[in-house]
Simulated assay, not measured.
Amino acid sequence: MNRLNFKKSAIVLGMCSLAVLGGCSDNDSLPPVETTPTPPAVVTQDYTVTVTNLTPSQPLSPIAVVAHNADNPIFSAGTEASVALENLAEAGDNSDLESEDGVSQLVSGAGILAAGSSESLTVTFNQDEIENLSILTMLVNTNDAFTGVSNFDPSSLEVGDKMTFRANVYDSGTEANSEAKGTIPGPADSGEGFNPSREGDVNKVHIHPGVITQDDGLADSVLKASDRFDNPAMKVVIERTK
C-alpha cells in the first residue's frame, strides 16, 4: 500500500472511531428535564368598611367586621342570640365571634368609637371565596343594646362601587334593661359586662325600645338624658377597593 492510500485509510478509520464514540455519548441516556409549571397568581378582592357613630353621645364598642357563609348569620331578629353575640351585646367583647360556625374572618376595630367619629376597616377575600359580611357593635352605656348590619353579600360590587346602610339598634334579649347601678359596662356605670344568666328578658333578638333614664323618672337608672339614642345609630359604607 502506498503512502497516499495509507493516509486515506487512517482518515476513514479515525472518522469511524469518532462516529462510534459519538454514538456512545452519555447525553442520549439522560432523562428529560422536568419543569414545574408556575402556579397562577392569587387574585384577591378588598372591601373597606367605614363605620360612623350617629348617636348623640353613646360610645360604641370596638367594631366587628365578620366574614361568614350565608347560611350562618351572626344575628337575626326573632332568633335567640348566640353566646358570642350575648358577649358582644352585654360586654362589648367581639372576640368570641371568630369561633362561630361558618366564620372565616374577624376584623376588629382599634377601640371605642366615640359619638360622631368614624373608623375604616379592610377585609380581603380570594377571588373565588367571597363570603357575606356582618358589621356590629355594642352601645356600651346600655345593658345589652347593639347595632349592626347582618349577612350582606358584597360579591356584586365592582371596584369603586359602594353600598350605604343605616343600622338600627337591637336588643339581644339576654339581659333586662334595668339600667341599674352595676349592670352597665360603659363609662356611665363601669359595671358588669357579660352575665350568662338570661333571666328578665325575652331571649330573642328584637328592635331595642330605647332607654328610660333617671331624667325620665326611672329613679334607679344610672343613665342620663344624654345617653338616649334613636334609629339609626350607625352608618356603614361598604366599598370594593380592589
Rank of each mutant, 00 (worst) to 15 (best):
Q127Y: 04
T174Q: 08
D216Q: 12
V211W: 02
N195D: 10
F125A: 05
M138L: 07
N126F: 02
S134K: 02
R166S: 11
T124K: 02
A180S: 10
E129L: 13
T122L: 09
A188L: 05
Q127W: 01
N177C: 05
V211P: 02
G116P: 10
A114F: 03
S150I: 01
F194V: 11
L218I: 00
L133Q: 06
F125L: 10
T142F: 01
D171G: 00
P187T: 15
I207K: 11
K162W: 00
V140G: 12
L121S: 04
N151Q: 13
T174D: 01
S118L: 09
V140S: 15
Y170D: 01
G193T: 07
S117E: 12
V169G: 06
H206V: 13
N203M: 14
D215E: 09
V202S: 15
I207M: 12
E131V: 09
F152G: 08
P185W: 03
P209C: 05
E158D: 15
T122F: 14
T142L: 00
N126T: 13
I112D: 13
F165A: 10
V222D: 01
K224E: 11
A115N: 06
V169N: 08
D216E: 14
L121E: 09
E129C: 04
D161R: 07
S118W: 11
S118N: 05
D189F: 00
V149Y: 05
N177T: 03
V202I: 12
E179W: 11
D153G: 01
D201C: 06
N177S: 12
E119V: 08
N143W: 06
S221V: 11
V149F: 13
L133S: 00
D215W: 13
G173A: 00
